[in-house]
């Protein structure tokens, strides 16, 4: 089953002459183990897509399903629960709470969800261990580098049963090596069975995805999946003397 599915989704802000069509009939499916990157110029609808996928906004027309459930049909409470249990976010700013250690930050969404402190901590440690971050467990955010904080934020985004991770420019403020480490991590987590949507303007980062979709003016203008014959890339034209 698709973890995330958008069916002919439209999102219009305002009405009449001043209406802004942020998305115009977008359909998208993301399966477990699949990472999708979304690229496009400012105003192309990237953030709208992510907000709709995360249940932070509702489509004007069309359907957004997470794990088979139509988000718009959920009650306010049901939606909050779906967001808390089903969806993890990674933002450009790491958004870790400064007064909590790494493991406490990762455990927080579970505790908010009623999981016992002990169990939440155990799950959080497991999530950190999956990402080889155990050594950071007891550090506070200000004792970690930007790259480390972002990796902890990914651990938090995917702690517990959550299988959908939505990342908005997660490598924004990081240098290229650190940014790459963060994406490597996201890739690993997705390969282990999660589904991911990554919004980025960096082509080199989007390249970690299985599929890259290009948005312009609220529609998908193109998409790029894997090559049928990757070895053809390694035949260098004019290689010879």
């Amino acid at each position: 089953m698709n973890v995330l599915e958008l069916r002919d989704v439209h999102r219009t802000h305002g009405t009449g002459d001043t209406a802004v069509h942020a998305l115009r009939g977008l359909s998208l499916q993301v399966r477990p183990g699949e990472l999708i990157a979304v690229m496009g110029p400012s105003g192309s609808g990237k953030s709208t897509l992510l907000n709709l996928a995360g249940g932070l906004d509702r489509p004007t027309r069309g359907e957004v399903r997470v794990e088979g459930r139509v988000l718009a049909e959920l009650s306010h409470r049901g939606l909050a629960e779906a967001r808390r249990r089903g969806i993890g976010y990674v933002f450009q700013a790491f958004n870790l709470l400064p007064s909590l250690t790494a493991v406490e930050n990762v455990a927080l969404p579970l505790e908010l969800d009623g999981v016992s402190v002990r169990k939440a901590r155990r799950e959080a440690l497991r999530s950190l261990a999956d990402l080889e971050l155990t050594h950071l467990a007891d550090r506070f955010p200000d004792q970690m580098s930007g790259g480390q904080q972002q990796r902890v934020a990914i651990a938090r985004a995917l702690v517990g049963p959550r299988r959908l991770v939505l990342a908005d420019e997660p490598t924004g403020a990081l240098d290229s090596e650190t940014g790459e480490a963060v994406l490597r991590l996201l890739r690993t987590r997705v390969d282990a069975g999660a589904a991911g949507v990554l919004v980025t303007h960096e082509a080199r980062h989007a390249a970690w995805a299985d599929r890259v979709i290009f948005l312009r003016d609220g529609v998908v203008v193109d998409s790029s999946g894997p090559l049928a014959q990757p070895e053809q890339l390694l035949a260098v034209p004019g290689a010879g003397a």
Partner: peptide, 9 residues
């Protein structure tokens, strides 16, 4: 982009 994806892989 496809080329980039393949190199990244």
């Amino acid at each position: 982009m496809r080329t980039l994806q393949e190199y990244t892989r």
